[in-house]
Computed example of a mutant assay.
Amino acid sequence: MKDFDIHFKWVGAPTWVIQIDNLKIACDPVLCPINTVQDHKYFRAKRRSEPHYGGKDFEDIDFWLLTHRHEDHIDSYGVVQINPHTKVYAHKNLKSWLRLIYHRNTEYMKWGAKATFVKEDVKVTIEAIPCVHASNFLASKLAGGVNGYWLDIEKPASSLSVYVTGDTVNHSKVKRSLEGRTVDILIPNVGGGGLDRFGGPYTFTAETLMDITELINPKRILPVHHKSFSLYKEPISKLYALKDERVLKFNEGDSVSV
Rank of each mutant, 00 (worst) to 15 (best):
H85L: 15
V79E: 00
T168L: 12
H171Y: 09
G166S: 03
L215G: 11
S228Y: 02
Y53W: 14
K110Q: 12
L31H: 00
Q19I: 05
R181L: 13
Y53S: 06
F4Y: 05
D62R: 05
S230A: 06
D28S: 04
I20E: 01
I74D: 01
D196E: 12
L94K: 01
R48G: 09
G112V: 09
L242H: 08
V132N: 02
E252R: 11
L23G: 06
Q38I: 15
H73L: 13
R220F: 11
T125Q: 14
S177W: 12
T165G: 05
P223E: 01
T213R: 06
I216W: 06
P235K: 12
V256L: 05
T213M: 09
V162P: 05
G192Y: 03
S49L: 12
D72E: 09
M109R: 09
Y89L: 11
K9P: 00
S161K: 05
V174G: 03
L98A: 02
A115W: 09
E234M: 03
P218R: 01
R44N: 15
E234G: 04
D5G: 02
V169I: 15
S257Q: 15
F250Q: 09
K155F: 07
S228W: 02
C131S: 11
D5I: 07
L178G: 07
G55I: 14
L151R: 08
S228I: 01
L248N: 11
P130W: 10
P130L: 10
N22E: 07
T36G: 08
K110V: 09
L142P: 07
C32L: 08
T106V: 11
E245D: 15
A139M: 12
I20G: 01
K233W: 04
G78K: 00
H91F: 12
R48C: 13
E50Q: 13
H70R: 14
T205S: 04
I129R: 09
G112A: 07
T15F: 03
I101A: 06
P51F: 06
R181Q: 12
I34V: 11
P130A: 09
F250G: 04
Y240T: 07
I101H: 03
V79W: 00
Q81Y: 03
G180W: 13
V164W: 08
W150Q: 14
K56R: 13
F250W: 04
I18S: 00
L248H: 13
L100R: 15
K155V: 05
N93R: 13
Q81H: 09
G78C: 02
N93S: 15
H103A: 14
G78P: 01
V224S: 01
V80C: 06
S177G: 09
K227H: 12
P201Y: 03
E59T: 10
